[in-house]
Amino acid sequence: MSFEPKIVGFLCNWCTYTGADLAGTSRMKYAPNVRVVRVMCSGRVDPTFVLKAFREGADGVLLGGCHPGDCHYQSGNMKTLRRIPLLKRLLKDMGIEEGRLRLEWISASEGERYQRVINEFVEQVRALGPLNLEVRKALPKKSQATA
């Protein structure tokens, strides 16, 4: 059997999560590998969420937010965008390929785009193979959140 990657998606409530719902309402089929955490804004996605997901067994992480300029909270998505390069560097230092993290802007009306992104990303992560177990173990244990 081919490798089935596990992917965690952090989707903002207003755009990408709604877009994902639209894909559902329109009965668009896509790969089942992405499991979603709804956040109010992609700006809420703390880098530790991403590390936590990798540590807990994810092979890839998808961040979904509103298109630049369309953020429900004015500019939360731009803050996410700024975090990405830092996060990617951090992941690289830990031995996690850049391709395992993806940021996408998907609006509430882009169900079709959501479907495409999911299928593409699943294939992308599938090609990278499972995340190395040693790498996973070495991830910081910072899962005891303060709040």
């Binding site: 955490v37 956040v39 109010m40 804004c41 700006g43 809420r44 996605v45 703390d46 880098p47 530790t48 969420f49 936590k52 429900h72 909270y73 939360g76 803050k79 975090r83 899962s143 959140a145 303060t146 709040a147």
Partner: peptide, 25 residues
């Protein structure tokens, strides 16, 4: 309640009600 400040706080001092780290973890 967007949570941007929560994600950015270097001391993890800001709590996001209902979208807290513990809940998301």
């Amino acid at each position: 309640g967007c949570g941007t400040c929560v994600a950015a706080c270097p001391s993890s001092a800001i709590l996001a009600r209902h979208f807290g780290d513990r809940q998301i973890f």
